[in-house]
Amino acid sequence: MNVEIEYGPAQSWMRVGLKPGDAIQAEAGAMVRHSPGVEIDTRLNSGRRAGLFRKVLVFFTALLRKFFGGETMFINEFTAPSGGEVVLAPVMSGTIQQRTLREGERLFVQTGSYLASTGDIDTQLRWGGLRALFGGEGLILLECAGNGELFINSYGGITAVDVEGSYIVDTGHIVAFDGALDFKVRAIGGIKATLFSGEGLVCEFNGRGKVYVQSRNFKALVGWVSRYLW
């Protein structure tokens, strides 16, 4: 498989050359164009080893999200039995970052930032646990684990921060982070800072690992646009 990321940094997309036997899975709706020999298989993003209950749960959540907006939890798998090409693009302007995952590694990806993955990388939503829900800010995480290449996209540019010790990131600027990191969501400063600093919730990371930070914040864009609604 040959992947080229073009038109970066702001308008990047990825062009994937598929050889027979290659497969890439991508977020539903990411396909821009493909050559005639490419086959598309749509499935629920419930994880490959999910049980029936989980599949049903994911299906209804997916339906709700399909109607009310947000990522759909459906993913498409592209294959090309006789070779072909598929081009994938994110929705927002920004970068695509490639990250290799090895057995035993886990990466938590903000759902809107997952674009595509190869190999046996399994993606599943992290349910329950306020830890994953980032209370109030509605950030839901996708846990990616397995062997393969992962492609994540951002709103704006991406900075990979090597955390050693502790690091604090605004929740709206988180793209992804290593599963090895400990994280907790909290308000920054006291109640006064929460109300008046303009900083919402932050995530405090502890340990060793990478945090991918984006230079723009989708919620800030929405907040700004909504002031002009009438």
Binding site: Y7, Q11, S12, G69, A89, V91, F218, K219, V222, S226
Partner: peptide, 19 residues
């Protein structure tokens, strides 16, 4: 390289209800 409608849907569905 980007889809105007997809962008509009993503931003639009995140907007608060119209006053």
């Amino acid at each position: 390289t980007r889809n105007r409608e997809a962008f509009g849907r993503d931003v639009g569905s995140a907007l608060p209800a119209k006053q």
